[in-house]
Design a protein around this nucleic acid. Structure first.
Length: 818
RNA sequence: GCCGGGGUGGCGAAACGGUAUACGCAGGGGACUUAAAAUCCCCCGGGCUUCGGCCCUUGUGGGUUCGAAUCCCACCCCCGGCACCA
């Protein structure tokens, strides 16, 4: 027997030893052959981190540990678990930090990645370091560019001049998703509007499918709901209002409404200030006022523009439409409460039944007729506020008396006969702007040629390498720093050979992270982004765990890209993540952790002091994994003590009894195996750990000496949480192989779960008056007999008559007395 | 405003409609120790008590039920998503 280390539990020394062993034995690494023909593959994915200079924070460790526990459990069950890790290192975050500290990102990132790797090993994750991904390497972003080209060729990428969100502080364009209430999500600077030619992915073409597929996904309810809200489907109708022009050619104003039933109450129209028909409908007398208002609106930043509380403003254009239902001539206004990027950018205003229209009509003295009446009102009941509920139609010609729902349908049908209406489904989801006027990202692989227009870079010429540029600071010009690097952007047109210019914008980081899970299994593949066989074998991902802050960004884009690649013939599935679980948030002593508060938990320090196993165990014990928990500094003492007791219950192994387990202990053991095995797959980690603690308390009760058969299964149960100590104890118990090699998860025997004696609660009128220790399976009659012998029960029965008896076998006897 | 999730001891939290407060932290008492740390044992929701027990308690108020933290209705508060979205 090899020289045994000390019998003292030294977490640091032992964890280092096992991390080295795993590396040397290749415990967590797939050979090329096993990768290609695994017996029972399980792809266990977690959201790869952005490698910041500060290193891993507790939130990362919490998420990764929860996912790692899941992966290790699957492995102990016999699955072949692929658990990769990588780095999402492109993007504005890294770039801004690099600017701040004055180090080039190409120098900064590798150092951060090295530090992250060290920390990730130290926390004991089961990562396959042989297949890792760094989005900033040309090996990777070559394929990010390839992906762009596929979408371009598939007609899903288009370049258009568009009003975009411009952050004057970050000096870049932001996606709608990155604008929170009109502010830049990164620096809280008010966002401005700019008009720039941008590349967009047509995710809105997929809105309905992205929504419909949600139903079949095994995802956290909160995440699904967030996507549902974000996609924002609504049902209504497109209505056409003929413009009453002085000339002969009548154009039409199209509006989208969810309330076609109220069209008889539309007393005016409102266009967004940016609406293209504004010049056409504006009368000469009003032109000056209209132009002034439009100029003002375009200057206004989006915060002010979207502020709900402010009072309504607008200007009459001097033009008129005909209400297609009433035939009346109604005025056309422009107002900034109508947004160009939703629906058609124009509305029919129904002040009687829409709050915003009501406010506007009140402010400008426009008529407010009633066209819907609820039970307590009739056609003439005055409206003192907008009535938005349902009811019966009134003042609506032949539709009077119909309810709002069927009336709406009937009105659409009626108008449709004259081609003035059609049913319409509208989505809130906008196309995905992927252009970034920054430096730290993959160049968009397009060449602009005066003769040929935008031409894709031939695939065999990928990657378009991001050049090392020392002056990578963005400026206010609205173009990327790459536009200053002439010898880089000057090139020839791939089609006609003429002098041409490279696209100087780089792509959004969410494009990098939108497909990384496809790359992991194929990380060694040089001739394709993802090898068809490996992809068929390993994907879709079996379980994905991550934060809900990515519910509508990363997760929606990943689904869209997967769907698009499926349609383009590159993948045979269209949903990337079979199961997704959002983990909760960790707070500290009841307060959110933040650098500015100075209350962040530093993982390195805790691991140094207590070991990774204790830290992992504590994080998983804090609260339900999917709800998060409160990190209290003292709290780790519980898990620390538990591991010490576990250690001293096994070591030295010569001290263990080799006899059969005690029946009492054995029963508790089987109950524990049953509970942990049931709760672990559901990520109910905190209660699983509590069950193991309870079991160890039974094993050690009154200082008894444990039997090997009592503790050996516990070593396996704890292994997903505390892999190092489990390996060490497993080895000391005489096993040669890693505990994670082979399916070592213990079975329980249902026959051994049942107690022989159960505690029966005796109630009188629903109140517990006694508890009885009775043999399992006691009959109602016998239980009655025993209950009546209890003085504290008998005294309630003395004067009363038992009118009813409720008997729940082996649990409870309730005597209902008069 | 709409849509999710939640409100249980001093604290983190458990609890198929069936003994509310498992497990752990903190706190109190004790053992061991010259002492401390570590370890081990006991107590630990509130009030009353003749020490047998009794009453109250899961955000608030109602309801269903033999029995409700759990189901139903109304309301209050906290967290998250969407939001001048027509």
């Amino acid at each position: 027997m090899a020289e045994q280390a000390s019998d003292r539990y030294d977490a640091g020394q032992l964890e280092e030893k096992w991390q080295r062993e795993w590396d040397e034995r290749g415990t967590n690494t797939f050979s090329e052959e096993r990768m290609r023909s695994p017996s029972d593959p399980y792809y266990n994915l977690m959201m790869f981190p952005y490698p910041s200079a500060e290193g891993l924070h507790v939130g990362n460790i919490y998420a990764f540990t929860g996912a790692d526990v899941h992966g290790r459990y699957q492995r102990l069950r016999g699955r072949e678990v692929f658990e990769p890790m990588g780095f999402d290192a492109f993007g504005i975050h890294s770039e801004n930090f690099a600017l701040k500290v004055g180090v080039h990102p190409m120098d900064l990132i590798p150092a951060n990645v090295a530090n992250f790797t060290r920390q990730l090993r130290r926390m004991g994750g089961m990562f396959d370091w042989n297949r890792t991904v760094d989005t900033t390497t040309p090996d990777y972003y070559r394929w990010t560019q390839w992906l762009f080209l596929q979408l371009f060729k598939g007609g899903l990428a288009e370049r258009k001049e568009a009003p975009v969100n411009w952050c004057p502080s970050c000096m870049t364009v932001l996606a709608n998703e990155q604008v929170i209430a009109g502010l830049c999500e990164r620096c809280d600077t008010p966002v401005e509007q700019r008009h720039i030619a941008q590349w967009f992915f047509k995710i809105s073409d997929y809105a309905q499918r992205l929504l419909s597929n949600l139903e079949g996904l095994d995802w956290s309810a909160t995440t699904r709901k967030a996507q549902e809200n974000w996609i924002g489907r609504s049902e209504g109708a497109l209505l056409r209002f003929p413009v009453l022009g002085e000339g002969s050619d009548e154009s039409q104003l199209e509006v989208y409404t969810t309330r076609p039933d109220t069209v008889f109450g539309a007393t005016y129209m409102v266009l967004a200030p940016e609406h293209p028909l504004v010049p056409e409908v504006t009368s000469p007398e009003q032109r000056e006022a209209v132009e002034e208002y439009r100029a003002q609106a375009s200057r206004m930043d989006l915060v002010a523009r979207r502020k709900v509380e402010q009072s309504k403003t607008g200007v009459f254009t001097g033009g008129h439409c005909r209400n297609p239902a009433t035939g009346e001539r109604i005025p056309i206004w422009i107002a900034d409460y109508v947004l160009m990027d939703y629906g058609t950018g124009a509305i029919m205003a129904v002040p009687g039944h829409d709050e915003r229209d009501f406010d506007f009509a009140t402010a400008f003295g426009l008529p407010i007729p009633r066209v819907v009446a609820a039970e307590d009102a009739d056609a003439d009941t005055l409206l003192t506020e907008a009535f938005t509920g349902s009811g019966r139609l009134v003042n609506s010609g032949r539709f009077d008396g119909m309810d709002t729902e069927s009336g709406g349908r009937a009105i659409v049908d009626w108008l449709a006969e004259r081609a003035l209406a059609e049913p319409r489904i509208n989505f809130r989801l906008h196309d995905w702007c992927i252009s970034r006027q920054r430096y730290w990202g993959p160049p968009i692989p397009i060449v602009h040629c005066d003769a040929c227009g935008p031409v894709p870079v031939p695939e065999e010429e990928l990657p378009v390498v991001l050049p090392r540029v020392d002056d990578f600071k963005p400026d206010d010009s609205g173009v990327s720093p790459l536009a200053r690097v002439e010898d880089w952007y000057r090139t020839s047109c791939p089609e006609c050979g003429a002098e041409a210019r490279r696209e100087t914008d780089v792509s959004d980081t969410f494009l990098d992270s939108g497909w990384y899970f496809l790359r992991y299994p194929s990380a060694h593949s040089d001739d394709a982004p993802f090898d068809p066989d490996l992809t068929r074998t390993w994907l879709p991902v079996d379980c994905y765990i991550g934060g809900n802050e990515h519910a509508v960004l990363h997760l929606l884009y990943s689904r869209f890209l997967t769907m698009a690649l499926h349609d383009l013939g590159h993948l045979d599935f269209e949903e990337p993540f079979t199961k997704f679980r959002a983990h909760g948030l960790i707070v500290r002593e009841g307060a959110k952790m933040s650098k500015s508060r100075g209350n962040v938990v530093i993982p390195d320090a805790i691991i140094e002091r207590h070991g990774a196993d204790s830290f992992r165990l504590y994080l998983m014990f804090l609260g339900p994994f999917e709800e998060g928990g409160d990190y209290r500094d003292q709290g780790i003492q519980g898990p620390v003590g538990f591991l010490k007791r576990l250690w001293s219950s096994v070591v030295p192994v010569e001290g263990l009894r080799e006899s059969d387990p005690d029946p009492e202990v054995e029963r508790k053991l089987h109950q524990t195996i049953e509970q942990v095995g049931r709760q672990l797959p559901g990520l109910q980690y905190n209660t699983s750990i509590a069950a193991m603690m309870e079991y160890l308390n039974v094993v050690r009760a009154e200082g008894r000496t444990p039997a090997r058969s009592e503790v050996e299964p516990l070593v396996v149960l704890i292994a997903p949480f505390c892999p190092h100590i489990a390996e060490e104890l497993w080895a000391r118990l005489g096993h040669e192989e890693s505990i994670f090699e082979g399916a070592n998860w213990p079975d329980f025997d249902p026959a051994k779960l049942q107690e022989e004696v159960v505690t029966l609660a005796v109630q009188v009128n629903g109140k517990v008056r006694a508890t009885l220790e009775v043999p399992l399976g006691i009959t109602e009659e016998a239980a009655m007999q025993r209950a009546k012998e209890e003085p504290n029960v008998a005294r309630y029965l003395d004067e009363a008559q038992v009118r009813r008896v409720i008997f729940v076998p082996d649990r409870l006897l309730n005597l209902v007395v008069a």
